[in-house]
Amino acid sequence: MVSGRYLVKRFVHGILVVWGAITLIFVLRHISPGSPINVMTPPTASPELRERVAEELGLNQPIYVQYLDYLGGVLTGDLGNSYVRGAPVSQLLIDRAPATIELAIAATVIALIIAIPLGVISATNRDEPLDYGASLASLLGISTPNFWLGLMLIMVVSVQIGFFPTSGRGTGFVAAVQLLVFEMDAGGFVTWFQHIILPAITLGTYFMALITRLTRSEMLEELEQEYVQVCRAKGLPEPLVLYKHALRNSMLPVVTVVGLQVGYLIGGSIVVEVVFSWPGVGNLIIDALTNSDWMIIQGYLILVSVSWVTVNFFVDVTYTVLDPTVSLE
């Protein structure tokens, strides 16, 4: 069972990691050559004006005061204001986050529902045409850059065939569900689906290929174990042997990989959002980079690091639930 002590220890680990990341981000900002004053003032600004801006931003304080202020801000959820947009960074991120999270979850779901059965089929039909087909598909999947895949999908599916819009989000998932529940109108849902399907496939393909490969190799390993032979000898139906026993044990490494790939999903979503003009956090950060809007970049990096740590915390907990033999000490 998951011991409370382990959870506490793991939690402290997480806090340490986030603190490290936050500090790293602070250091990055201070060694970066561009001064925010240049972003906020015209090149012709008088020294007095520049001085006033510096004071407003707290840039003339000693570095440790700036660091403590910054830490205090992060702790209270205050990520400062965007240099360019003026709005609070936290608000900007909160507004954009649902679109990105939706996309990441959709991509993961698509990846998993295709990859796991594909991996199992591949393993149970080892060295047969089906296996070769699946292996080739996953090789292509891990070798194709997602932005190009997205463009090709737009070109073929949207432009040539005319299915699905080329860009945008249409409506949010929550709004679509509300429309369905309160107005009995599935239209919102259809719009949502049409908009998200191509970006989600684009983002999920690499992931899908990776998990197919992993499921295949884990399944092959499990199927060679003695307990599988025992199950078969006892006359257990093959699907039960495969899915209840072998697959369950194969899922442990898959769960770990899903956790580690959260980083891929976050990074990958930036590119996919650019390709499909998806109004998520990724597009916000690209804008911020073009405008040297450091406050947004910083806020984004903090958000990403916190998400990564949180997801992996839960992955570790899931791991113990899935595998009773792992006592995390």
């Binding site: 980083g263 950060i285 990403v304």
Partner: peptide, 12 residues
């Protein structure tokens, strides 16, 4: 710490 910030994000 390094892993918590995805490579692509920090690279950008």
């Amino acid at each position: 710490v390094r892993l918590s910030i995805p490579g692509l994000v920090l690279a950008i």
